[in-house]
Simulated scan of single mutants.
Amino acid sequence: MDLKVTRYEIDPAGVATLWLDRPGRGNSWTGRMHDEYRWICKRLDDDPDVRVIVLTGTGSTFCAGADFKALDSYVGAKTYDPNLAVDAERPGYGVRPEFDADMAWQLGMRTPLIAAINGACAGIAVALAAFCDLRFAVEDAKITTVAPRIGLPAEYGLAWILPRLMGVTHAADLLLTGRVVLAEEMRSWGFFNRVLPREQFHESVDAYAHQLAAVSPAAATTTKRQIWADLLHADPRAAVEQSKELIGLHMTSADYAEGVAALMEKRRPRFEPQPSTREETP
């Protein structure tokens, strides 16, 4: 694909950085960006050398939400097509049926996904970040769902994901008012893992991503799928029993042998790349 509004690179440690790249338009979301984003994620998730993906925006904005021209085109329309792009690539699909949808497919990806919110994050971009596994933000970043202020309900699964990330009370505040919230406030709600000064932001996110890239890729994938699968049911016994089965499986792996050896020898482990898989986690 000829990338026009996104770009990416992969460093030797397996950390991929993916930029939303429309700096002259606040990196605003379009159908083209949607297609390119999924195309890149599919290739990164299928690449066994990629261990972490960092999603960010070019310049000092993460994503200003849907492009205003696209929003205006629906005014007076009789119908709305809810599918962002029927023929787009489908990273993360096939792991669990619950994740086979726009934005939710990020939960099905093999690779841990970090949202690096380097500035304003609005509208659909909040869903984009919420369905990542981890979130970092600059301390002056402004966040808003916008939707109720333009006559729309919660979009793209935010009414499902936000209460699970930061509780019903805070989710209701954000979704019902559409007010602008600073990253520091959302950090206190549990939405962000860290909120950092701008001058430290990229270095800190990069250091964290490399720390994550150093763990067992197979263990990271399994753990990610455990987290999201267990949130889909209210049965702690099933979670415990499933985790015991997975522990037994991973104890037979080369990664476990290498991890124990590295611990005993007081050195960093050397884990092998993890091939992309689509096995369902109960």
Rank of each mutant, 00 (worst) to 15 (best):
F68P: 14
G57R: 00
T6Q: 00
M186V: 03
P153V: 07
D102E: 12
G76W: 04
Y80S: 13
A125Q: 03
D35G: 03
G248M: 07
E203P: 01
V50C: 03
A209H: 05
D87H: 05
C121H: 05
Y93Q: 00
Y208I: 15
H170R: 06
V240K: 02
W160S: 08
P236K: 02
R225D: 14
L174H: 04
I53H: 03
G123H: 01
Y256S: 01
L174Q: 06
V75L: 11
P217Q: 08
A234F: 14
R96H: 14
D2F: 02
D67K: 00
G248E: 10
R267F: 05
Y93L: 03
G123K: 00
V168D: 14
E241R: 07
A257V: 13
L246C: 12
M103D: 06
D49R: 11
A127C: 09
A147D: 08
M264L: 15
I150K: 08
E98F: 10
G259D: 06
A183T: 10
D47G: 03
R135C: 12
G157K: 06
L152I: 05
G178N: 01
V181D: 02
L3W: 05
T56A: 08
Q200W: 11
T61V: 15
D67C: 09
N193G: 14
V195A: 07
L162K: 02
S253C: 00
Y93D: 12
V205I: 10
W228P: 00
A64C: 11
Y74I: 12
V138F: 00
V168L: 13
W39E: 15
T221H: 06
G65V: 00
I247W: 05
G14N: 07
P12S: 08
T79N: 11
A129Y: 03
D72E: 15
A219W: 11
D11Y: 04
E9V: 06
F191D: 03
I227P: 04
E265V: 08
S204Q: 13
S60R: 04
R267A: 09
H210R: 14
A122C: 14
P197T: 09
C63H: 00
G92R: 06
F201C: 01
D81E: 12
L20S: 03
E185Y: 01
D230W: 12
G167C: 05
H233P: 07
M166F: 13
A229Y: 10
L3R: 02
A238S: 10
T169H: 14
S253W: 03
V50P: 02
F191E: 06
E139A: 11
N27F: 05
R7P: 01
T277K: 11
Y156E: 13
V181M: 04
M186R: 00
L232I: 08
C132S: 14
S276D: 12
Q106M: 14
A183I: 08
A213E: 04
P153D: 03
T6R: 02
S73I: 05
P269E: 02
P163R: 01
F99H: 10
V86N: 08
A141S: 13
D206L: 07
L128R: 10
V75C: 09
F62I: 01
P91Y: 08
G24M: 10
V180L: 11
A154C: 02
R149F: 08
G24Y: 09
T30W: 04
T277V: 14
P236G: 02
R268L: 12
